[in-house]
Amino acid sequence: MGDIISIILLGIVEGVTEFLPVSSTGHLILATKLLGYDAARWQVFNIVIQLGAILAIVVLYWRTFLAVAMGLARRDPVSLRFVRNILVAFIPAAILGLAIHKQIEALLGNAVVVSIALVVGGIAIILVERLAPKSDIVGVADIPLGKVVGIGCLQCLAMVPGVSRSGATILGALALGVERRTAAEFSFFLAIPTMLGATTLELVKNRHELLSGQGVSLGAIGLGFIVSFIVAVLVVKWFVGVVTRYGFVPFAWYRIIAGTAAFVWLMTI
């Protein structure tokens, strides 16, 4: 029963934080540490349940994806640019992730790195919100190719746990003149190929461990997946509303407070 409650809690943490600029991976690492679990054993679980949150985007934006698919069939320029932008922004993370995946894995159990990255990222959000140029790009398909490449490169910063994939993507877009809501939605859509790639790589690498039952069971991963999906569906619409009205600064202050508290706690244990 204890494990089931922990799995549900971790699924909630993932669903709440995946699309907020607060680092879902960082929160899962801290939550695993707080629960006293072996970070290495739960690493696959923490990565794979992110697909539940990704599925929430597919469900919430199914009309967008359907319109893009129909547009591709007609070779509609807007749909072609939409897909191009997502794929181009995905390439830098795919290349770097394959090149340094061992170094990335070494950081995934380091809760101190997470706490520091949360604080630094919070400060960065405040600075970008104040200094970003006036936003004149509305719509994912309207982002110029050069800016897409820049956003994709900045997403690579999220390989450091605690930085936040969505945060790096959104901040990069804001700094390059993309409107807030479009920056958030571009981050949502870019998460699909990025997290599919990361999860596939993790499953292939750990397939023997999963099948032998040595790590976290497939049943536990399935439950975490379902919980993260349900929670993400509820959170995403709320997040878009908050961002449209208040911007990203509230999340910056949360990062600074949470990161500082986590660092102090980690220094005392």
Rank of each mutant, 00 (worst) to 15 (best):
A158V: 11
T194R: 07
I192Q: 01
A184P: 00
P193K: 09
R180K: 15
P92C: 15
I143M: 11
I170T: 05
A89T: 02
L118H: 06
C156Y: 07
C156H: 08
V113E: 05
L131P: 00
E202L: 08
M159Q: 12
A175Q: 09
S166V: 10
S115P: 00
A141H: 05
A168Y: 04
K147R: 15
A191S: 14
P92I: 15
V148L: 12
L108H: 04
V163L: 06
A99S: 10
G146C: 05
R180L: 12
F90N: 10
E202V: 08
A111N: 05
I151Y: 02
F188N: 03
I125F: 05
E129G: 09
V88S: 10
L145M: 12
A99L: 15
V113D: 03
L176C: 09
L201T: 04
K147T: 13
P161K: 15
L190W: 01
V112Q: 08
S166N: 06
V148E: 07
A158D: 05
I170D: 00
A183C: 10
N110S: 11
V149I: 14
A191E: 02
Q103W: 04
C153A: 14
L127R: 11
L174F: 03
L174A: 06
A132G: 00
Q155F: 07
I125T: 12
L196H: 04
L154R: 12
A93D: 05
Q155N: 10
G139S: 02
A94C: 08
I137S: 11
A183R: 09
V120R: 10
V119Q: 09
I125K: 11
L96D: 01
L145R: 13
F186Q: 02
E179W: 07
L107E: 02
L174H: 03
I137W: 07
V128I: 15
R180Q: 10
T194K: 10
L171F: 04
A158H: 08
V148R: 12
E129D: 11
A191D: 01
K102P: 00
L131F: 13
Q155W: 06
L171W: 03
